[in-house]
């Protein structure tokens, strides 16, 4: 009998439990809003939620890796802007082929991540400070490069098609789910694969669990940490391209503040800020909780400022429940 309670306890404390709790919260939210408003449960609104999650979701994927190493990346929001603006420069101003422009945008994000990683692992600047610096730097650079004006993709309609077109709609008429949603799911599957199957994923957990022990085991800690931040920048780059495609423009003033939504999604998804644990599935659920909440509250005509208050409450509640779970 004693072992039974122990098993039950282990189950309660397990990471799976955290994800189950987050997932149940998402279901409860959806049911609640569906009951409250018939519009919430329409197909169009469902697609709207999926689409609204795409950018924040992709951003949060990269942040998940960083937070598992017990680090933080505050720059992903403006790195996203930076990538979007550069993509605009490449495609609209320089008339590069679309795939090359996209690649350039993603590489720009990765480069910013690499610089973050180098500052943190080689120059020993605390992640909070290094990425705060990068936040300002990329915000400024985006404005400089774009000369404060949005860059539109009106000459290249195919670019907008990338995120907003619907391959699924062509296969199954009526199911016009934008490609952006599938890009998010694709990116999540890749991220999950990297986190659970590759050496990079293993060292991501090891760094967050006990960095000194990892170093004493002969692992090149600085190199792998740099790789983690580069990966985070890579996902921010994808987010930037996605955002530009969705808006059919690169908006140099948009993006600041997105890092907070991304961090919130990761934290709601059960990734511990003290490092060593976390999952991609949790992060995706977390991102959906935030966008469902925003969407539902808007439909119920709750003013935007109150939506923020509720989101804030949810973040704190999620972490508090997680602390309770660990305490047992």
């Amino acid at each position: 009998m004693k072992s039974e309670t122990k098993t039950a306890q282990t189950l309660f404390r397990s990471d799976a439990m955290q994800r189950l709790m987050a997932f149940s919260a998402l279901i409860v939210l959806s049911i609640g809003f569906s009951v409250a408003s018939p519009y919430f449960r329409t197909f169009d609104n469902f697609v709207g939620i999926l689409l609204a999650t795409a950018v924040n979701g992709v951003l949060a994927l990269g942040v998940t890796f960083v937070i598992i190493t017990a680090g933080i990346d505050l720059s992903v929001g403006t790195v996203l802007t930076f990538s979007a603006v550069l993509t605009g420069v490449f495609i609209t101003n320089w008339h590069l082929p679309i795939p090359l422009g996209i690649l350039g945008g993603v590489l720009a994000g990765s480069l910013a991540g690499f610089v973050n990683g180098t500052l943190i692992s080689r120059m020993k600047i605390p992640p909070f400070i290094a990425t705060l610096g990068m936040l300002y730097a990329t915000k400024g650079l985006s404005l400089v490069i774009s000369e404060l004006k949005p860059i539109y993709f009106n000459d290249t309609p195919a670019f907008r098609e990338m995120a907003m077109g619907s391959i699924l709609g062509k296969i199954i008429p009526g199911f016009e789910v934008p490609n952006a949603v599938f890009i998010l799911f694709g990116a999540a599957i890749i991220a999950n694969f990297i986190l659970t199957r590759t050496v990079l994923g293993r060292y991501t957990f090891a760094l967050g669990s006990n960095e000194e022990a990892t170093r004493l085991s002969g692992v090149n800690v600085a190199a792998w940490k740099t790789a983690v931040y580069t990966l985070c920048g890579f996902f921010a780059g994808i987010g930037g391209v996605l955002m530009a495609s969705r808006l059919n423009s690169a908006q140099p003033a948009l993006g600041a503040g997105y890092e907070l939504d991304a961090i919130a999604a990761v934290v709601i998804g059960g990734t511990s800020l003290s490092g060593g644990e976390g999952s991609i599935l949790g992060t995706i659920i977390g991102a959906f909780i935030i966008s469902t909440l925003t969407n539902g509250l808007r439909i119920l005509s709750v003013p935007q400022e109150w939506q923020m208050v509720v989101t804030g409450g949810i973040v704190i509640l999620a972490v508090f429940l997680d602390i309770l779970r660990r305490r047992r």
């Binding site: 293993r202 957990f205 669990s209 022990a213 085991s217 692992v219």
Partner: peptide
Amino acid sequence: MPHLTIAQNIFIG
């Protein structure tokens, strides 16, 4: 590394 399994700890690196 407390968050990793026994085998993962032994063969880290």
